[in-house]
C-alpha cells in the first residue's frame, strides 16, 4: 500500500474540503483497503468518516419509512428490529452479504459505493481494459462473469452490490451531501439513478460529484399489499458474490398483481430494472408459469458474450424464484 495522509473529521461539513482532489472516503474499508493494497487506487489522503455521528442510526416512522445512516454496518442493518419487522426481505439480503467479519465492518454507504469485482479492473488494468491495439480485453478474453444486459460497451463489468437491487425494488432513495454543493448541499435521488454505466475510463460507475458523500438511504414505508423477495444464484452457498440475482416487489390486489418491480443484479454494469418482467406480471396471479413468462421477458434483450451465455439461464431462474418467493410459493430450488 502506498503512503497516505489520514484525517478523522467529526462533522460532514468538513469532508469535501478534506477530500480535496486526491482523497478518498474511508468508512468500513473492506473494499477500499484491498483496492489500495493491489494499487488499483492510490488516494493521497483517507478521510475517515466514522467519527461523524450524523451519519449513524436506523430509524423507522410509519409515515416516512426507513432512514438508514450511511455508517450503519451491514450487521447492524441485518439485525435492526425495524428492518426485520418491516422489510424482512432487506434483512435477509443483508444477512447474505459476504461473511460475518465483513458485515461487522462494511457499511451501507460503502456497499453502494463498492467497486466492481471485474478481474481486469482488480488487476489494475482498468474498468474498460483494452488490449494494446484498442480492443476490449473483456470481449477478447475470459468474460464468464461479465454483463449480459446493458453491455453495449465499453463497460462489461457487473454491478457488485446485492443490497442495491432489493432497495431499488422497494423504491429506495439515496441522499448525498457535499458542503461545496449549492443550497443545503443535500442531493436526493432514486437509488437506481445513483448507478450509471460509464462511457470512458475516466468516469465512475456512481453518480458521485467530487467532494460528495453518501449520507443516508431512505426506503418508503411498504404498503399492506406488498410482497417482496430476492434470490441469488451463487457458485458457493456463502461468502460469494452471486452469478445472478433478482429482487421482486409485488403490489397485490387480492390474488392478482397490481404493479410490480423486478430488479436484476450481477447481470449489467448497473442494477438492472426490468419493466418487461414487471409488465408481464400485471393483472396476473402468481404461478410457476406466470413467473416463467416474466423471467423470459427479463432476459429477452440479453446479449451474451463469448463465455457467459449460461448467465442468461441463471438470471431467468433468479427472476422466477424471486417472484415465486415474493408470493410465498415454493421456488423449486434451495432457498
Amino acid at each position: 500500500m502506498r503512503p497516505f495522509e489520514y484525517v478523522s473529521p467529526t462533522n460532514k461539513e468538513q469532508v469535501a474540503t478534506l477530500l480535496g482532489e486526491y482523497g478518498s472516503i474511508l468508512a468500513g474499508g473492506t473494499d477500499l483497503l484491498a483496492l489500495m493494497k493491489d494499487d488499483v487506487v492510490a488516494p493521497q489522503r483517507l478521510v475517515n468518516i466514522k467519527h461523524i455521528d450524523q451519519l449513524r442510526g436506523v430509524t423507522y416512522q410509519p409515515g416516512n419509512g426507513l432512514r438508514v445512516g450511511a455508517l450503519t454496518t451491514i450487521a447492524e442493518f441485518a439485525e435492526d428490529a425495524n428492518v426485520r419487522r418491516v422489510y424482512p426481505v432487506l434483512a435477509d439480503a443483508a444477512h447474505e452479504v459476504a461473511s460475518p467479519q465483513i458485515r461487522n465492518l462494511a457499511t451501507i454507504g460503502g456497499n453502494m459505493c463498492q467497486r466492481p469485482r471485474c478481474w481486469y479492473f482488480r488487476n489494475g488494468i482498468g474498468l474498460m481494459a483494452k488490449t494494446p491495439d484498442g480492443k476490449s480485453m473483456v470481449l477478447e478474453g475470459d468474460n464468464r462473469y461479465a454483463a449480459i444486459l446493458g453491455n453495449a460497451g465499453p463497460a462489461y463489468f457487473v454491478s457488485p452490490s446485492t443490497l442495491a437491487p432489493v432497495l431499488i425494488a422497494l423504491g429506495a432513495k439515496i441522499r448525498l451531501y457535499s458542503a461545496k454543493a449549492a443550497g443545503s448541499g443535500v442531493r436526493e435521488l432514486p437509488l437506481e439513478e445513483f448507478f450509471v454505466i460509464p462511457k470512458s475510463e475516466h468516469e465512475l460507475e456512481h453518480d458521485l460529484k467530487p467532494g460528495e458523500m453518501v449520507i443516508e438511504i431512505v426506503v418508503p414505508p411498504p404498503s399492506q399489499n406488498l410482497k417482496a423477495a430476492s434470490y441469488e444464484v451463487r457458485q458457493r452457498a456463502a461468502f460469494d458474490w452471486p452469478l445472478a440475482q433478482a429482487s421482486a416487489a409485488l403490489e397485490m390486489d387480492g390474488s392478482t398483481v397490481k404493479s410490480a418491480r423486478v430488479v436484476l443484479g450481477h447481470v449489467a454494469p448497473i442494477p438492472w430494472i426490468s419493466p418487461e418482467a414487471a409488465q408481464a406480471l400485471v393483472g396476473k396471479s402468481i404461478s410457476p408459469e406466470t413467473a416463467m413468462v416474466a423471467a423470459n421477458a427479463a432476459v429477452a434483450q440479453a446479449k451474451p458474450l463469448s463465455h457467459n451465455k449460461y448467465k442468461i439461464t441463471l438470471a431467468k431462474a433468479a427472476v422466477k424464484r424471486a417472484i415465486l418467493g415474493a408470493a410465498g410459493q415454493s421456488t423449486g430450488g434451495a432457498a
Binding site: P3, F4, E5, Y6, V7, S8, P9, T10, N11, E13, Q14, V15, T17, L18, R45, A179
Partner: peptide, 12 residues
C-alpha cells in the same frame, strides 16, 4: 488543516 471553520489534524 482548516475545514469548515475547524482545525483538523492530518496524520502521516
Amino acid at each position: 488543516v482548516e475545514a469548515a471553520g475547524e482545525e483538523v489534524a492530518v496524520h502521516g
